[in-house]
Write a protein that binds this DNA or RNA. Structure first.
Lengths: 131, 131
DNA sequence: AAGAGTCAACGACGCTTGTCGTAGATGTCC
DNA sequence: GGACATCTACGACAAGCGTCGTTGACTCTT
């Protein structure tokens, strides 16, 4: 086992990761400004820097310091991270039942008609592949 | 606005809530012992007591202190809490997309054949009701 | 080359979480 | 009524998190 299972990102770290996934490799300043756009919270520049440094320490982002202005990049894919986070919540709150998770997801009115159709397609594809 | 939107339970608090949901109203000692059964972690009696006191303070559980040995009960239903937690994760990590959540849930091999059938039934029921 | 701007690094502070030790109150048993 | 057990309450503590202020290094402009 060489995969060390990186620590879960915290709330603030996840917000930064989302910027990194959307924008690709970015500098501290870029992350800071993009974050201001998508957040109601107003986070200071040095706070973002510190968070990025912590995340580098933990290995959840990678840093290119070949230039004076460092460039940060997410170490794990968005999909992978989503899976880890959902797995964790599923175990902690849903007794490990994927069915319960789906049931709750559907019960939220965010699930529109198009979303339902999309989910049905996913289900079909998954069932066929599972055969 | 009388609904104050109770704070999210922490990891340790959620573990306790799960005992409460399964066993119904319980004393500290009962929670402590049941927890020892379902957890690998060995949590001390006073730790459980303190957690329960904190949770009472936050309003996450309700305490009946009519007897010397207090009895604790979850203030919110399991389903309601699951919904709140999933909503939060969906917003923070999935951009609010229920479809993405379902896709990730399905991608975990926990989803067995029976689970898939169950999910399909949920989907049918939900679609019909939405009509 | 001086001054202004940009940047990473360092250290600190307040808060929350989870962990108990200890004390004090309330029973129970002989 | 004394000894012992059980239970809650109080307070402390370490670790993690999110927040910055400050400092020193580097760069650019004039």
């Amino acid at each position: 086992m060489t995969t060390h299972a990186l620590p879960q990102p915290t709330r603030a770290e996840l917000a930064i990761l989302r910027v990194l996934w959307k924008q690709g490799p970015s500098t501290v300043r870029q992350v800071h400004e993009l974050l201001r756009g998508t957040q109601d919270k107003d986070t200071g520049y040095t706070t973002v820097l510190k968070l990025l440094q912590n995340m580098t320490e933990k290995g959840i982002v990678q840093r290119d310091e070949s230039e004076r202005t460092h460039v940060y990049e997410a170490a794990l894919s968005e999909t992978r991270t989503q899976r880890d986070l959902l797995r964790d919540l599923m175990d902690r709150a849903f007794g490990g039942s994927a069915t319960s998770v789906v049931a709750q997801a559907l019960s939220m009115k965010r699930a529109s008609a198009e979303e339902l159709a999309e989910i049905r397609r996913l289900l079909d594809a998954h069932e066929k592949r599972g055969k």
